[in-house]
Write a protein that binds this DNA or RNA. Structure first.
Length: 907
RNA sequence: GGGCGGUUAGCUCAGUUGGUAGAGCGCCUGCCUUACAAGCAGGAUGUCACAAGUUCGAGUCUUGUACCGCCCACCA
């Protein structure tokens, strides 16, 4: 067979190459998991992106990290599954849809639930499609055959089962409590969806007149409008200023309601006047106090944040409008004492971006303590799951410890409708707080259950509300694998191996998954949780929609390629869990850091081209491994380096040190392989070169390049696949993605040899430096004398003399024990004196300056080292090898100084 | 009010168990040396935020301070 030489185009085209392999992997089902596959299972479920539009840089970062881990373990032979999917994101999507409706001058009530949901599903199809397309462009090695959506049939079934079971166990209850009400989305939200913002507000001081005997109680508030719903004034029971008033009453201004003065430990006598107005229906503390003291709960607010009929003349006004008007009226009536500027925290709705209103309403809750305690038990007694970096364990734990019941009902339409049916015929066709209900998986079952209790002649209505999104995402690691059915996937891949996610989502999602999984599966859903930081913009600002400072991953992918972007993001994560900053120029859409990675892909590309041009059409397999005894020094050196790097990269990836591994591979590929090895062997690749030596080089080049491609594949999957396919001239459908990851062969690692090469490289650099300083043209070969008193060094130099001649462009190389006494350019590398005789061109003054500068440096070093060695504390207490190291360094420095002094003396 | 990160070259960041500071980008000089100018060779650059302590020795450990950032928190 005539060998056709495989070639690569001179320019790497990321876009066609990436698309080609993405399609190839998918069409050939390369990443489809098989529970019967050999190997220990390795499983990751994707943190499902919200179907709220498109992916952002954070997704690119997260999925680059996951794909790196997944591809690495797959190549290590694990039975791998990465399960993809998306999340319905109830509030977020509903907010988008309602904004669209508003633009059309419509409301959701006008179009009705069915039409609204139709639009929602259409949106989901579009956005979900976009996201899935973007994930494909990131080149993620997911199993698309197992793609899930939190509202698909299977997952909905899981939600029903989970809800039903929790209800039956008494862990879900319905009741009237104070919740965080978001007037913008007109829904309850959980504590987590509330964000406290520090605002410059005011503290209004009011006077409430005592009903008897004249005089006033002075109270202060940050929300004056709530006074309309006051039903008491409270003082601390030990506050002597007021003890005589406890049990008396004040007349609430405006409303002219007589309300009691009560005593409660909660009140801090040292704050303000020590009197607190109590609005049980509109403040969480007052709510508790109201229950303790049996106070009336007067709700003054509508669901949209306007005041209701209990607010008298202020009815119909928006809460902030009413605030102004109440103050005005209080002032007019002479009850306003003063207004202070006051900085305080105001709870804002995460989604609605407006202040939440504490409101009493009937909602569904999960009784959280049993589930949280179970998760805590796993953590405390089994160290499960393991957080990386470890410090997040405490964050996770503290939150579980302080967790309160979880409000899971949302007054929205997009989401899992609560599987509770009210027997409305019992309460005049309406759903009230007292309407009896049944929890069931569907209409039929509900009817059956209800009829058993209330007879056949009943009317049922399903709860209109939906569940908090996180209720279904909490089931994600097992619902996606078929739970509640027992499936082969569950049996094989559950619990999953690692969860990779951001710290911002530990409470929302990670903790919910551990609680749900602990409860329903009796296991923690993953062994480890790798927490990454945020991707920040070029100004170190958090990227957000509102700040409009997002950097679109696709822009950078189009410009530099997916591999380059991914590599940039990964190599930045050295400090695990730290936020990373992405360089970006908004005018040109350029990123210097991604460009650096793109340059690296290009370097790899061209090095591969060079190697392939010199293999005479043979593949690594055809060439085989070189025979050990035929290897030359530099061949052994690169093989030693290769195995050393393979070992380190493997260890780093096993410990989530992805950034360090990326850097290690960068240095090895660019530095050791391209800058040194390829340059060292170029002369042996000539057609005139010794055929046997040439073949050994071909074998070594092919072997190491093949290994580099494997090592780099999880980091840069597309370019490595492309090159590997070409290098190996694949025709049988093999893919690099399924090849074995290099495992270090310790026998090849030769620290002594690597050390020898450091000396050779040092000498080469010194000669190059002298040439540059002397202004010798790169094309001109020069004579060079290397002098060392140490036989061992001379031996190394002799063995490497061809390398020195090649890479330093030296024509006459002399290696000697003594140095000739004449004017020459001189430099020192270790204890090797490097001499370049260039009598004609030597600029004596420049040379003297240079030598004096070098000498100055060395003398500083000698001073520091000898000072240390004269210190008895150091010599007596420091470990022997450290002391010896200092002695060696001093000897070398003294030797260098002596050489330089000699040279100076000769000028 | 509690807790957690960070502060190292002009910029972005590394720095393993304490042994005397590094990489990329940028900058300066010289090179189109037939893999690569998205490249090659060479060069310059640091009171490691500040202070005290432990130690023979601190970027690294301890304590405190300052500044930046994040998380949690029911004082009206």
């Amino acid at each position: 067979m005539t060998a056709s030489i495989p070639t690569l185009p001179s320019q790497y085209d990321s876009s066609t190459t990436e698309a080609k392999w993405q399609a190839h992997w998918e069409e050939n089902g390369v990443f489809i998991a098989d529970p019967d596959h050999e190997g220990e299972p390795y499983c990751v479920v994707i943190p499902p992106p919200n179907v709220t539009g498109s992916l952002h840089m954070g997704h690119a970062f997260e999925n680059a990290l996951i794909d790196l881990l997944v591809r690495y373990h797959r190549m290590r032979g694990r039975n791998t599954l990465w399960l993809p999917g998306t999340d319905h994101a109830s509030i977020a999507v509903q907010t988008i849809l309602e904004r669209q409706l508003r633009a059309e001058n419509k409301t959701r009530d006008e179009i009705g639930r069915d039409a609204f949901l139709e639009r929602a599903w259409a949106w989901k199809e579009e956005s979900g499609g976009t996201i899935v397309g973007q994930l494909r462009r990131l080149g993620v090695s997911v199993d698309w055959s197992r793609e899930r959506f939190t509202m698909d049939e299977g997952l909905s079934q899981a939600v029903l089962t989970a809800f039903g079971q929790l209800y039956d166990e008494g862990l879900i209850y319905r009741g009237q409590y104070m919740v965080n009400w978001c007037p913008a989305s007109q829904s309850a939200v959980s504590d987590l969806e509330v964000e406290n913002k520090e605002v410059d507000g005011h503290l209004w001081h009011f006077r409430y007149p005592l009903t008897e005997g004249g005089g006033y109680m002075e109270v202060a508030t940050t929300r004056p409008e709530t006074m309309l719903g006051d039903t008491a004034v409270a003082v601390n029971p030990t506050d002597e200023r007021y003890t005589h008033l406890i049990g008396k009453t004040v007349m609430l201004p405006i409303m002219n309601r007589e309300i009691p003065i009560i005593a409660d430990e909660y009140v801090d006598a040292s704050f303000g006047t020590g009197c607190v107005k109590i609005t049980p229906a509109h403040d969480p503390n007052d709510f508790e106090m109201g229950k303790r003291h049996n106070l009336p709960f007067i709700n003054i607010m509508n669901k949209d944040g306007s005041l209701n009929e209990n607010a008298g003349e202020f009815q119909g006004q928006d809460r902030f409008e009413a605030r102004k008007n109440v103050v005005k009226r209080m002032e007019a009536d002479g009850f306003l004492v003063k207004i202070e500027d006051y900085k305080h925290a105001v709870p804002y709705s995460d989604r609605g971006k407006v202040p939440v209103e504490p409101l009493i309403s009937t909602q569904w809750f999960v009784k959280i303590r049993p589930m949280a305690d179970r998760a805590l038990d796993f953590l405390d007694n089994h160290h499960d799951p393991v957080f990386v970096p470890e410090r997040w364990t405490k964050v996770y734990r503290d939150w579980l410890v302080n967790l309160k019941d979880w409000c899971i009902s949302r007054q929205l339409w997009w989401g899992h409708q609560i599987p509770a049916w009210y027997v409305v015929s019992e309460t005049n066709g309406e759903i009230t707080d007292d309407t009896p209900f049944v929890v069931a998986a569907n209409d039929a079952e509900a009817r059956e259950k209800a009829e058993a209790k209330f007879g056949a002649d009943i009317q049922l209505e399903q709860d209109p509300d939906v569940l908090d999104t996180w209720f279904s995402s909490g089931l994600w690691p097992f619902s996606t694998m078929g739970w509640p059915d027992s499936t082969k996937d569950l049996e094989t891949y559950y619990p999953t191996t690692t969860l990779v996610t951001g710290f911002d989502i530990i409470f929302f999602w990670v903790a919910r998954m551990t609680m749900m999984a602990g409860h329903f599966t009796g296991k923690m859903p993953f062994q480890s949780v790798y927490i990454h930081g945020l991707v920040r913009d070029e100004n170190n600002k958090k990227m957000s929609k509102s700040a409009n400072n997002g950097i679109d991953p696709l822009v950078l992918i189009n410009k530099y390629g997916t591999d380059a972007l991914r590599y940039t993001l990964v190599r930045e994560v050295t400090g695990a869990g730290q936020d990373i900053r992405l360089e970006y120029d908004r005018n040109t859409d350029e990123s210097t850091s991604v460009e650096a990675s793109r340059n690296f892909t290009n370097k790899l590309w061209n090095a591969s081209r060079f190697v392939m041009m010199n293999l005479d059409g043979q593949t690594p397999e055809q060439l085989g491994l070189p025979e050990a005894e035929k290897l030359e020094l530099c061949d052994r050196w690169i093989l030693s380096r290769f195995h050393q790097v393979s070992r380190q990269v493997g260890q780093q990836l096993d410990h989530f040190a992805m950034g360090e591994a990326a850097k290690e591979l960068y240095e090895f590929t660019w530095g050791d392989f391209c800058d040194w090895y390829i340059e060292l062997v170029k002369s042996r690749l000539n057609q005139e070169a010794d055929p046997e030596s040439r073949r050994v080089v071909q074998q070594t080049l092919a072997y190491v390049l093949d290994g580099i491609l494997r090592l780099l594949h999880p980091f840069m999957p597309h370019i490595t696949e492309e090159v590997w396919q070409t290098l190996n001239q694949v025709t049988d459908g093999r893919v690099l993605a399924l090849q074995q990851y290099p495992i270090a062969d310790e026998a090849w690692i030769d620290a002594d040899l690597e050390h020898q090469f450091e000396l050779l490289f040092g000498v080469i650099r010194t000669i190059r430096k002298l040439r540059a300083e002397a202004g010798v043209k790169p094309s001109v070969a020069i004579a060079t004398i290397l002098q060392s008193e140490q036989a061992s060094e001379r031996s190394i130099l002799t063995k490497g003399q061809a390398y020195i001649q090649d890479l330093a462009k030296v024509k006459d190389l002399t290696i000697s024990e003594t140095a000739p006494q004449q004017k020459m350019f001189a430099g020192v590398c270790g204890t090797v004196q490097v001499l370049v005789p260039l009598e004609g061109v030597v600029d004596v003054d420049a040379l003297r300056g240079k030598l004096e500068k070098d000498l100055g440096k060395i003398e500083g070093e000698i001073k520091s080292l000898s000072g240390r060695l004269k210190n008895p504390g150091f010599v007596n207490k420091a470990p022997e090898d450290v002391v010896q190291g200092a002695r060696d360094a001093l000897a070398e420095a003294e030797k260098q100084a002596q050489i330089l002094q000699n040279r100076l003396a000769q000028l």
